[in-house]
């Protein structure tokens, strides 16, 4: 069996992203959000989860300023972050439209969408009040 996730498991995430909508799996059994998408809820192993719209509001758990991105197509410097969404899930993303000295671990951020290499990617900017 290949290691790929179940076919179509993540389609809705990317379809919604094309519409600039951020979604995440929410379990119908335990109500927990999780990410990345899994066949079963990692909290209670239920398969009754569905994608729901996220507020896109979260906190920077950690970040790293990358000065040597993998290739020239990426911005340089590139701020890669681990975002903790307020709904209790996490994802890798970027912090954009600010300088590394304007924020720190724990700063509040909000999701936006940016067309990168033909895909609408969720990225994050500093929330008002943190700027």
């Amino acid at each position: 069996m290949p290691n790929n996730p179940a076919e179509g498991l993540t389609d809705i995430f990317w379809e919604q992203a094309q519409e600039s909508i951020l979604v995440r799996p929410v379990c119908g059994s335990c109500d927990k959000s999780f990410f990345s998408p899994q066949v079963l809820c990692p909290n209670c192993q239920s398969d009754t989860w569905e994608y729901q719209k996220s507020s896109g509001e979260g906190t920077i758990y950690s970040y790293t300023v990358v000065h040597r991105p993998p290739d020239d197509s990426f911005p340089n410097p590139l701020i890669i972050a681990d975002i903790e969404l307020d709904e209790g899930w996490r994802m890798f993303s970027w912090i954009v439209k600010c300088d590394p000295n304007e924020f720190d671990i724990g700063s509040k951020v909000k999701a936006h969408f940016q067309n990168f290499a033909g895909t609408m990617l969720p990225v994050f900017t500093l929330s008002k009040g943190d700027q």
Binding site: T10, W14, F35, S36, Y61, S62, Y63, T64, V66, P69, P70, F74, L78, I80, A81, D82, M91, F92, S93, W94, I105, F116, A117, T119, L121
Partner: peptide
């Protein structure tokens, strides 16, 4: 190659950097 990793330009050293920065 993972759809929630690769598009954002992650590479293995960056995964470690996220932990080390904390």
């Amino acid at each position: 190659k993972n759809e929630f990793v690769e598009p954002w330009g992650l590479f293995t050293a960056a995964h470690f950097a996220l932990i080390a920065n904390v």
